[in-house]
Design a protein around this nucleic acid. Structure first.
Ligand SMILES: [Mn+2]
Ligand SMILES: [Mn+2]
Ligand SMILES: [Mn+2]
Ligand SMILES: [Mn+2]
Lengths: 221, 221
DNA sequence: AATTTTTTTTAGATTTGTCTAAAAAATATT
DNA sequence: AATATTTTTTAGACAAATCTAAAAAAAATT
């Protein structure tokens, strides 16, 4: 039994979910920008999602998912992240290559497939980018994490999440020998360019630019 | 890079391929029956596939895929059967449960995904029903197989393919301890009901009805 | 060879998701 | 408070894939 919603509807639901994580609600323009469609198309879909009781929506107001809408969003995100995990762990994809493929796989709705995949992967809690994977009930692990720029000096911490999935970021992190899970300490902060000197394991310290630090999230250990 | 064709187009292409395996060409009515659509809808799509140079088609004539159309069909079939293999071998699906799921997964077109999946599965040559899996170049293994009803007495043979994917067949075969690969010999043929007595391994002989024998294909070893 | 039946195509309508252009509402600026 | 700008919605059109009903062509029957 595949999902009751079209691929298009699922993509809207997921996009609304992600956007409303920031402020609790979304605007037409934000959503149209995020989906690369025109605001007029968004309005059409909002009406449709309202009829299906997935969205709280009144004309000219901000909108947000109903409890049911959120449940469906979490299920799509579950599928997306499980497939990303599969692609990296089993098929040896790089984490910069998995998003587009997962964007398609996430729409295969068979519950049996998803739950068996979850079990096969040993119920992973985080995807290759460090984002939490909702479990079969939609529950996700919350990690008490901070941006690397906010980590105090000499406090041992572990990289938990990256804020970008670009090939360029992966290249840079590979070069610096940093992945999700890497333990590090900030040894020095330079006010001139806001770069930080970081010690990874027992290796020589490496310099991390402000731009890089901003996309690295860590959990003190 | 996903496939250039819509899911609908892919389903038509694949259906045409399977139907033309029998006689080399297909009719509008055959195709509409196989896809559960109306003949008028089929005609529309035939014109579209002709424009895309995937189909040899003239109004009121039988039609068949071009070389390009066949290539695309084989690629879809490759994806379908690789996913079926994955579902049975890795996710512990029964072979009666995989078809519908593969029907969706086959439309995820990423070449990298398919080739990596193939490699991960160790380049399987046959799917769980014994159907050959096209390789990356569209080549399939041909098995010299005959229907069980045509196997001579006392000739050792191996089950290579099943002609149905129903739960009922799987149940019956499991009960008789027969799967793809099982070695057996026909010991006796009964003309009254055309059933056959078959010896599997060193077990006591089992009786196989005419209906069952007709969906079992074997290769003499 | 003419007629009937079956098959296939055409014509026109419908649904989903998209767009552009214009109107309406909300927000910001003077 | 009036005006200008931005945001959102409406109106109408279009492409893809489907349908029903009718017309045309092919095949089968008499
Ligand atoms: Mn998607
Ligand atoms: Mn991810
Ligand atoms: Mn399909
Ligand atoms: Mn199969």
């Amino acid at each position: 039994m595949s999902s009751n919603f079209s691929i298009t509807e699922e993509n809207y639901i997921k996009a609304i979910y992600h956007l409303q994580q920031a402020t609790g609600s979304v605007t037409t323009n934000e959503l149209s920008a995020s989906l690369l469609t025109k605001p007029a198309s968004v309005t059409d879909m909002l009406k449709k999602l309202k009829v299906k009781k997935l969205l709280h929506y009144e004309p000219y107001k901000v909108f947000y998912l109903t409890a049911e809408g959120k449940k469906i969003a979490l299920n799509i995100i579950r599928r997306h992240r499980l497939w990303e995990f599969f692609l990296v762990e089993k098929l040896a994809f790089g984490w910069d290559e998995v998003h587009e493929v997962a964007e398609e796989l996430e729409h295969v709705g068979s519950k049996k497939l998803v739950d068996k995949l979850d079990s096969y992967l040993d119920f992973p809690k985080f995807d290759p980018h460090g984002d939490p994977i909702p479990d079969v009930n939609g529950k996700m692990s919350i990690v008490q994490q901070v941006n690397l720029t906010e980590l105090p000096l000499n406090k041992l911490a572990q990289v938990t999440m990256v804020g970008s999935q670009s090939t360029e970021l992966l290249e840079l992190l590979s070069h610096k020998d940093i992945t999700i899970g890497t333990k590090l300490e900030v040894k020095k902060k330079f006010s001139f360019d806001k770069s930080v000197e970081v010690k990874v394991k027992n290796l020589a310290p490496v310099n991390i630019s402000e731009q890089l630090a901003k996309v690295l999230f860590v959990k003190p250990v």
